[in-house]
Write a protein that binds this DNA or RNA. Sequence first.
DNA 1: CTGAAAGCGCTTACAG
DNA 2: CTGAAAGCGCTTACAG
Lengths: 360, 360
Amino acid sequence: MPNFSESRKKNRVTLLDVARHASVSRATASLVIRKSPLVSSETRTKVEAAMQELGYVYNMGAARLRADRSLTIGVVIPNLINPFFTELLAGIDRIIDAAGMVVILVNSGDLVARQETLLTRMREHGVDGVILCPAAETGMSLVERMVEWDLPLVQVLRRVSDDCDYAGVDYAFGMRQAVDHLAGLGHRDIAFALHGPVHSAYQERVDGFREAMSARGLDPGNIIRVPTQIAAVAEAAPLFVSGPRRSSAVVCFNDVVALGLSAGLYDLGITIGRDFSLVGFDDVADAEAMRPRLTSVATFPEAIGEGAARLLLDRLEKPDLAPRKLVNAPRLHIRQSSAYRQVQTGDEQKMRVDVLRQGN
Amino acid sequence: MPNFSESRKKNRVTLLDVARHASVSRATASLVIRKSPLVSSETRTKVEAAMQELGYVYNMGAARLRADRSLTIGVVIPNLINPFFTELLAGIDRIIDAAGMVVILVNSGDLVARQETLLTRMREHGVDGVILCPAAETGMSLVERMVEWDLPLVQVLRRVSDDCDYAGVDYAFGMRQAVDHLAGLGHRDIAFALHGPVHSAYQERVDGFREAMSARGLDPGNIIRVPTQIAAVAEAAPLFVSGPRRSSAVVCFNDVVALGLSAGLYDLGITIGRDFSLVGFDDVADAEAMRPRLTSVATFPEAIGEGAARLLLDRLEKPDLAPRKLVNAPRLHIRQSSAYRQVQTGDEQKMRVDVLRQGN
DNA sequence: CTGAAAGCGCTTACAG
DNA sequence: CTGAAAGCGCTTACAG
């Protein structure tokens, strides 16, 4: 660890200095700072003037030591490159900021060992609570340990335990909307493209896809893993448009996968929204910016972040609240990348399909 | 501010508990924690065992109060939605994390008033230093104030003062590469598309474009502002391909603008990389993912983040160092969105152009 | 409304 | 190598 100079500690203005300058006691000055109603407005003004003149800066560290709260919360996310997490973070930040608190952000890289280190570090820094998107492979024991530590926790997006607050998405409902939409456009051979580490949100999406397909009497087994590395996703495009499992539409694990496949299909000369349909998941800003515009299941990451932050604030105030779940309903946002299935000559039969335009 | 329960402060294991349990003095236990060589390995083992058994957690807050350092730094950025900032943040985080420190992240929304509030909050939290991307309109007085506050500061990407460390990009060099590349492909009517608030990086890009154009004997005045709101950028596309200032190529302020214009040109039925050339700036992940792939001037945000973090760590150790600048050289990454100018009948003359393929 | 005093959990000289 | 003591800057009862 770095070894800092000591210059700053000199001539620091303390509360005692302020009190003396205003000719009151330190306790009174402290009451002014904390906006206690016990102090007369006259005294208050005098003290505030003194703070101003002396350039006093409140020392949270000292206050925290005494009061055992830091007005700081830890946020642990598995990566920063998916814009989804950025939007989530913005939502968390808004609420935490409005509560006069501050967030310490760390990146677990989806590695449990690293996550462990980071959580310890947060404890040492005395965060009042933690919002955690658990790294893949996180065991439920983690949550037990946090309880033992008395460290308030809310799980976000992924969950490893039911004994703990959780803010996330109703993935099954999202999948149903995606599949129903494509089925309504006449598609029968619908694939699911996924990638990345396995965790609760992954599993829920897979299960959701399966159920939605089965409910429609369609084959629920056309699930294909594509590379996790973003630049390589495009190379997987041929898997979907040729071979025995050839499909006419694909539901994507998230918009990152959709963007990659969109590029890969473009490279194959396939026109999305005409020859092939694509549905993304999350509806991040890129969905609207790309061409053709991406039909995507909006999961509202910013709202989830806000929800998670509120759950945590509530828990800080009432630690004995029963564990709560905040499961956001996603909503299909239909754009250009999904279209009627092209009925080709030689197909089993030309059928009229009911079109189901859901969402807006 | 929330009013927390007090449950956590009970039964906290302190250093004194550990010392007693290991039958040593508190001072000795403290030395063990700080890995002092003064303590025998026998004693060390004993103390470490006690810490383990009792579940001791180091209390940074207490240590910081005494030692006046928090192992915490503040990072203030103007927005979180441009992926450029996300990558910058990843770079900062890597270095700070490796130094055993932690970052408090806040978002100024590019508003000076809010930035002011946030900086005060960081001071109160006792951060050891700040990495700041100044909000537009930030005056140089801010830097003076930080100096007065004894709060080590490094400016990143934008600068308001030369009396302070700075890590950024050689925008002029980047613009020269972009313009030279397009000129080398035969383009003469090259526009510059920009948006967003005005700050040093904005100005440097404008100046860089002008100089590069002039140096080539081309009209440096074709600079067009597009909407700042991302979804609206596409609507500005017609400005570039028709009217008196019609151009055959455009250099973009950043990749966000490029992505927007790319969409807008697509909507107009124009094929990028054939009918029209587009060069982005920053080379974020989207540049490789979009189609046609975007030629872009790579500015390596992650490396800049790392550089900024290193500047800050250096300054924490040696506060009296002269202010330093770290100006990264960008590099043109040629992909598919830029192509030879289409020579149309009726043009002044068909000329053979020297092709300049720079970069890889 | 105000003052004197104790204490949060550590680190830092200072003696031994 | 170890112990006793002071102190970082605040908050919190407790008297007045």
